[in-house]
Amino acid sequence: MFSVRTVALVLASVALLPLGVPARAVPPPPGPEGLLVPGVPPGPSQPWQIDTPDQVLAPKVYEPTASEDAVEPRDARPGTYALVEYVPLDDAVTRVLCSARTGPYQRGVERWLKLKVDGKQSAADCMAIRAFQQKQGIKPAIGFAGPVTWARMQLLAARENPNAHKKCPVRTGRIACVDLDRQLTWVQKGTKVVFGPVPMRSGRVVHPTRTGWHTIYWRHKNHVSTLYNTPMPYAQFFDGGQAFHAVYGSIHTTIGSMGCVNLTLGDARRLWGVLKKGDRVYVWGHRPGT
């Protein structure tokens, strides 16, 4: 017989679709990540949610009233952006202390931690990964080399110089750099980084964030998606319906957005104070798993 927790975790592995979106529009993620589930409940701040819909079509552009601009979007509830790792279902159900499973980011994690890079989980690997997860507040800290652990490593490695590989063009004006490969975004003016890098979530395989040059053409602090009636706080549109904006849910999910660049509320608020209408955006790479 299945326990209530087992059933809940199985249900958690199924993507919750927004109203009005046919099931065929949201295929399961490819590769081993499609078999993973959140390792711990995300708490009262959010339900078992692995997708937040964004706006696909370009919004109706208008000048927000002074009263609209004066109202700040509501704060996210505590725990909304907790670092919840995606782990194998049986590891979550049995609450293992140290996973014996090889994770989808095993080699990258081994290399980052300066372990033997063989792409196979070992007891030593698990203990080292678990120590990193505990230090970074990633739960469950069971030593599984999952997408959230790898994303955290990518962020830490990029903090000193996110443009070390010169993927984002250097210009005299502000450029918002969107690195799909590492799921990071930052703003630079010349060679100086004036915002970030911060973690983000880009578009899924069927609704990818479009690469190349774009321009911030419309900003709306309290925008709501006209397709899904979903809040898009601090929205800054740069290409059709694709925008930087906050979400009231985790940005660390195995399924991407509907094309927008999703940020935490705090990061989206800070980015709002940095970018202006007319600033350039440069997007490159591919979201992992797409």
Rank of each mutant, 00 (worst) to 15 (best):
I50L: 15
P28F: 11
V37M: 08
L11H: 13
A23Q: 15
G43M: 08
Q49K: 14
S45D: 10
W48R: 01
V21L: 14
P29F: 04
L36N: 01
P44W: 11
A25W: 09
P22Q: 10
L11C: 13
L11V: 09
P38T: 03
V14R: 15
S13F: 00
D51N: 10
V21T: 12
D51W: 08
L16A: 14
Q46Y: 01
V40P: 06
V21C: 02
V26T: 05
S45K: 02
P32K: 13
T52H: 05
P53L: 05
I50P: 00
T52C: 07
P41D: 12
G31W: 01
P28G: 11
I50H: 11
V14G: 00
P27L: 12
P22F: 02
G31D: 05
V14A: 13
P38Y: 02
D51E: 09
L36Q: 05
P38H: 02
P44V: 02
L35N: 10
Q46L: 06
A23L: 04
P28S: 15
P42F: 03
V26K: 04
V40K: 13
V21R: 07
G39P: 00
V26M: 14
P18N: 10
I50M: 13
T52P: 08
V40W: 00
L36Y: 06
V14L: 15
A25M: 13
V21D: 03
V40D: 11
P38M: 02
G31L: 08
G43H: 08
P32F: 07
V40N: 08
Q49V: 07
L16N: 14
P41V: 07
L35A: 15
P28D: 13
G34L: 06
P53D: 06
S45F: 03
V14Y: 13
P53I: 03
P27R: 08
G43N: 10
V21Y: 01
P22L: 05
P22N: 11
W48K: 00
G43I: 05
R24A: 12
V26R: 01
P47S: 14
E33G: 01
L11S: 13
P18I: 04
P18E: 01
P29Q: 11
P27W: 09
G31F: 02
L11Y: 14
A12T: 08
Q49E: 14
V14F: 13
G31H: 05
G20A: 07
T52S: 12
P47E: 13
E33C: 06
P53M: 03
V14P: 02
T52E: 11
A12L: 09
A12H: 09
A25H: 11
P29G: 08
P47T: 11
P28E: 13
L36E: 03
E33H: 00
W48N: 05
A25E: 12
L36I: 03
V40R: 14
V14S: 12
L36M: 10
P18G: 01
P41I: 08
Q46T: 07
P41C: 00
L35W: 07
P41H: 12
G34N: 03
P29L: 06
A15I: 15
Q46D: 09
G34R: 04
P27T: 07
P41A: 12
A15S: 13
G39N: 07
P22I: 02
W48A: 11
W48I: 01
S45R: 05
